[in-house]
Amino acid sequence: MADTKPQRRVFFRIWDSDVAASFRRSPVAIVSGVVALVIVLAALLAPWIAPTNPYDPSSLNLMDGFTPPMEPNAFTGNTYLMGTDNQGRDVFSTILYGARISLFVGVSAVLLAMALGISAGLVAGYRGGWVDAVLMRVADVQLSFPSILIALLIFGVARGIIPPTQREAMAIWVLIVAIGLSDWVQFARVVRGATMVEKGKEYVQAARVIGVSPLRILIRHILPNVMGPVLVIATISVALAIIAEATLSFLGVGVPPTQPSLGTLIRIGQQFLFSGEWWILLFPALTLLALALSVNMLGDWLRDALNPRLR
């Protein structure tokens, strides 16, 4: 069944599906999709697109510092699309590399949160009883704290454990774990609710009559049927995780300046806002805004597209 015909059929099915049709009809979805795609592609292809490599100290020229956008530098005569920062790094290039880190952290954190939340939700919803009670009370407790506080807490604990020499290298991973752990609850809740609905359906009973194991029922039967709402939350969560990463980096507890994410860039940029070098702040901030907004709008559209007909 692995020849090309089924694949073409799969493509056609996706193109012809209600979701795809609703995408084609929604200008907001198309614009958000294009914006998000451009940013993601630019971030992925940063090493080939970016005019300079901002991580390579040898390519930097301090004389290039504070060059305004689209104006030749007074000393070197170089022109930069979005200007340069205090160290002469090309802002456009740092944004491309920064978006790369922001996206990596955001997506990885959401994947972690999904893995945790889906597992907890499936088990709680299917088993019920005290397993459900314990998992959901933990979730309730966690929900009563702002997630940024949880992330800060995890970050603090991690700093205490990791030796100082490793801290810079580990910073990104700590950030992912911190954001991921602070975000699993909503996945768990939605999956739990959907699982409780699905497990009462007759196709699950049919599997139980044959003696299919609970684990297999959860993974092969129930999981595919609860993924719709999970995808919606995941999309919106990516936007929120990118913002959370930016917030933490802005507060100085995120990724180090040597490997700046969009949040780090904004933190650096805000120091120069009132001395007239507005571009160092403005362009990373706009990028963050465009990225988070477009992903969020995609999530909103996806929710509307999946909701009315498919259920």
Partner: peptide
């Protein structure tokens, strides 16, 4: 295990008894 092979069930709602995926 032995008995499961020998007995089966047909359900009321054919829209719910087949996994849609």
């Amino acid at each position: 295990r032995v008995l499961r092979r020998r007995m089966q069930m047909i359900f009321q709602d054919p829209f719910a008894s087949l996994n849609p995926r």
